[in-house]
Amino acid sequence: MRFRLRRLAAAVALLCAGAVLVPVQASAVEAACQDLNIPVSLVDVPLLGLKDQTMYGRLCVPPGGSRTLQVLVPGGTCKSDYYDPPDLSETRSFRKAVNKAGYATLSVDRVGSGRSSKPPAALLSASAQANAVHHAIQAMRTGTVGPGFDKIVLVGHSLGSATALIEAATFRDVDGVVITGFTHRIAPLTVTPTLVALGPAMLDEKMSKIVGLDPAYLTTVAGMRYSAFHNPGPFDQQVVDSDEASKDLIAAGEIVDAVLIGLVLPYSRRINVPVLVAMGEKDGVFCGPLASDCSSAEGLRQGEAGYYSSEARLRTFVVPGYGHSINYAPNAPLLHDAVTGWMNEMVGR
């Protein structure tokens, strides 16, 4: 009898020990992240083979690794934090959702922003950014700055989407493109709040502390993030504060050819891989009267289909009820699910 009791006690202890291990196993499923500084250039063929700029990227790889990488390019006045906002619920983290779906991510700071190098603003354009992203993609394919990847999907937001469009159409070196917060029509009746939100970065209390910043760099005026990027979505002070704290730089030249090449010219028809376009239903920069129909995925698809080739097999998605910066929407998981579902179908792990 005593022997049986001892065996029972031992079994209970073993079960308890197993229960204690569960939290450790749960924490182990988090992606492994590392900071990368990737040598890049703003021109097609770097002078004498030298890459004279640095692009910062946060590489996160899910447990067990991944053969497929998403390169995440943020919009103007944003940096890599856009895809993983600090101090907010995980529901706003595009990066974590993608990692949990089994894909690696590289969230970059555009050259001239965040932790990337800051050349004279006159050197920066959407095309120059596309060249820099191209060099980063090549580095990730070959594994020269970290693990190599077999498939790469380029994901952009707003100005980052213009950069992604130009990169994919020019170099044709990716396996898919996700465009968010960008269509081929600007909304003339509602874009004004976003435009007037921009001002010289040197006059901004936070940005003016950046060493060597020249007058051609811009940022958003303090207190303008909601009206510029979130309106008419529900006002959430925590979200707005997080976005304001993470705001960064943009060079005026990036806007010029983003409009010329991304909007005016049918350059996106050169993209020869699957494309997903995702928009906020109430995006005041691109959607509304005299602009893109973002009231439904089908309306968006009909408006954008003519700008893409049949090879793009265009898919579209709309986040209901939110403005421009859809990753901050309370229903952002709808976007995350749409992107990972599209990835599973069109690209694969």
Results as ranks from 00 to 15, higher is better:
Leu8His: 04
Ala13Gly: 13
Ala13Tyr: 02
Leu14Lys: 01
Ala17Pro: 01
Leu21Ser: 09
Val22Leu: 15
Val22Cys: 04
Val22Ser: 03
Ser27Gly: 01
Ala28Tyr: 00
Cys33Ala: 08
Asp35Asn: 09
Leu42His: 03
Asp44Phe: 05
Gly49Tyr: 04
Lys51Ser: 08
Asp52Val: 03
Tyr56Pro: 03
Gly57Ala: 12
Leu69Asp: 03
Gln70His: 03
Gln70Arg: 01
Val71Met: 08
Pro74Lys: 02
Thr77Asp: 04
Thr77Val: 14
Cys78Trp: 12
Asp81Met: 08
Asp84Val: 05
Pro86Leu: 02
Pro86Phe: 01
Ser89Arg: 10
Glu90His: 07
Thr91Ser: 09
Thr91Val: 15
Lys96Leu: 11
Val98Cys: 07
Lys100Thr: 12
Asp109Lys: 03
Asp109Pro: 02
Arg115Gln: 13
Ser116Pro: 02
Pro120Asn: 05
Ala122Ile: 03
Leu123Thr: 10
Ser127Val: 14
Ala132Met: 07
Ala136Leu: 13
Ile137Ala: 00
Ala139Asp: 03
Met140Gly: 01
Gly143Val: 09
Thr144Arg: 15
Gly146Arg: 13
Phe149Glu: 00
Val153Asn: 06
Val153Glu: 05
Leu154Arg: 09
Leu159Trp: 04
Ser161Phe: 10
Ala162Met: 14
Ala164Pro: 15
Ala168Leu: 08
Ala169Lys: 11
Thr170Pro: 12
Thr170Ala: 13
Phe171Trp: 13
Phe171Ser: 05
Arg172Met: 07
Asp173Thr: 01
Val178Ser: 02
Gly181Ser: 00
Thr190Pro: 06
Thr192Met: 12
Pro193Glu: 10
Leu195Tyr: 11
Leu198Val: 07
Ala201Cys: 09
Met202Trp: 12
Leu203Pro: 02
Leu203Val: 10
Glu205Thr: 09
Met207Lys: 12
Ile210Ala: 08
Pro215Leu: 00
Pro215Ser: 03
Thr219Arg: 10
Ala228Met: 03
His230Asp: 15
Asn231Arg: 15
Gly233Met: 08
Phe235Arg: 14
Asp236Met: 13
Asp241Leu: 11
Ser246Gln: 14
Lys247Arg: 15
Lys247Asp: 11
Asp248Tyr: 07
Leu249Val: 07
Glu254Met: 11
Asp257Asn: 08
Val259Asp: 02
Val259His: 08
Ile261Pro: 00
Ile261Asn: 05
Gly262Ser: 06
Leu263Ile: 12
Leu265Phe: 15
Arg269Pro: 07
Ile271His: 13
Gly280Glu: 04
Lys282Gln: 14
Gly284Pro: 09
Phe286Tyr: 14
Gly288Thr: 11
Pro289Ser: 10
Ala291Glu: 07
Cys294Tyr: 06
Ser295Leu: 05
Ser296Asn: 00
Gly299Pro: 00
Leu300Val: 06
Gln302Gly: 14
Gly303Lys: 09
Gly303Val: 05
Gly303Asn: 11
Ser310Trp: 11
Ala312Asn: 10
Arg315Cys: 05
Arg315Gly: 12
Thr316Ser: 10
Val319Met: 04
Pro320Thr: 00
Ser325Ile: 00
Ile326Gly: 06
Asn327Arg: 10
Asn327Ile: 10
Ala329Tyr: 06
Ala329Lys: 01
His336Arg: 00
Asp337Pro: 00
Ala338Gly: 03
Thr340Trp: 04
Glu345Ser: 15
Val347His: 02
Arg349Phe: 02
